[in-house]
Design a binder for these strands. Sequence first.
DNA 1: CTTGGAAAGTCAACAAGGCTGACATAAACT
DNA 2: AGTTTATGTCAGCCTTGTTGACTTTCCAAG
Lengths: 170, 170
Amino acid sequence: MADHMGGSGTGGGEQLLFLTDDQLRRGIEAMFFAYRGFTADPDRILNERGYGRAHHRAVHFISRSPGTTVNNLLGILGVTKQSLNRVLRTLVDDGLVESRVGSHDRRERHLFLTEDGLELERHLSEAQRGRMRAAYREAGPEAVAGFRLVLEQIMDPDLRRHFKTLKEGQ
Amino acid sequence: MADHMGGSGTGGGEQLLFLTDDQLRRGIEAMFFAYRGFTADPDRILNERGYGRAHHRAVHFISRSPGTTVNNLLGILGVTKQSLNRVLRTLVDDGLVESRVGSHDRRERHLFLTEDGLELERHLSEAQRGRMRAAYREAGPEAVAGFRLVLEQIMDPDLRRHFKTLKEGQ
DNA sequence: CTTGGAAAGTCAACAAGGCTGACATAAACT
DNA sequence: AGTTTATGTCAGCCTTGTTGACTTTCCAAG
C-alpha cells in the first residue's frame, strides 16, 4: 500500500494524498502511545532519584548547550520562569547543575552540568537512546527518514526554529 | 542520503544502520518538540472550556470505542482509577459522557458520549487532524509510512497491543 | 446460600509541575 | 537618571498524577 509515485524529496510541496479521518486518527493514537514509551525509561530512572520529567528536560538541554542562559532555556522549554526556576534550584542545590554569572553580561546566568549532572544525563539519555536505536533498527533507514520528516512538520514554527538551531548549531 | 538497500518491508529484522548518538539525540528532540505541537491545538480548545488533556484522552477513547468499560479505559490510559474517575465524573456531571450500567455484568459501566460530548470530540479531533493532515501532506506518503512504523516500534509491547486492537478491531 | 473476589465508586491526603501576580535586585542601555 | 532586561523569589491556585482505606454491588464457585 501507499506506493503511488514516491518522491521522498525534502522540499516537496503538496502531493496527491487521500487521507481519511481514520488514517489520521491512527497516526494520532500512534503518537499518543509512542510518547508513553518514549518517556517510560527515563521516567523510571528519574523516579528512583526523586526527579521528574521537568528535571530531565532541563538537564537534557543544558547538556546539549552548555553555558546556555536561563532565558534561552525558557524559550526552548516553553514554561514560565517560576516553573523552570523551581526545577533549576533543586538541580543546583543537589549539585547537578552549576549556575555561573555571565562575564559579558553579568545579569545572565550560564548553566552547566557538574560531574554528577553529566552522570545523570548519560544515564537518562542512554536509556532513551537505547529504545530509539532499537526502534530505528526495526523500522529501517527509510522509515527513520520519514519519521523525522513528519515530526518536523508537526512542530509549531517557532519550536521548529529551536529544533533546527539545535540540529545544526555547534 | 540513506539509500543503501531500501528494504522497507514491515517484518524486517536488523539492517546495517550506523546510528550515532547524535542522530539518535536529534530524533529524541524531534519527538519532544513535535509532541508539543501535537497537543497545542487541542490544549487551546480544552482550555477555553475548562478542561485538560486528561479529559481529551477520555473523550477520545470513548469516542473510539463507544460502550467501553472503565476498566478497559484504565488499561489504555495507564492511570489509576481514582485519576480517571475524577475526570469521568466531571464529564458525566457536565453531560458530555453517559455511564450506563452493564446489562450482562451489572458491575461494569459502559461509557458513551452524549451529543455534547460528540460535539467536543469533533472539535478537538478536527483541530488535531488538521495539523496531522498538513504535516502528512508536506512530508509525503513514504515519510508517513515510516513515521507510523517507527512510532509503533517505540511503544511498549502492551501499549502496542492496545494500539493494534484499536487499529484493527471493530 | 454463603462467601470470596472483581468492578466500580468515593474520600482523604499528598506531590509534581504547570500557571498568575507581585515584588526585589542587579546590570545594561539610552 | 530613568527604563528595560535578566533573574530570582514568595505566595497561591489548578490539573493530574499518586497511595491507602473503605464501601457497594454483584457474579460465581463452593
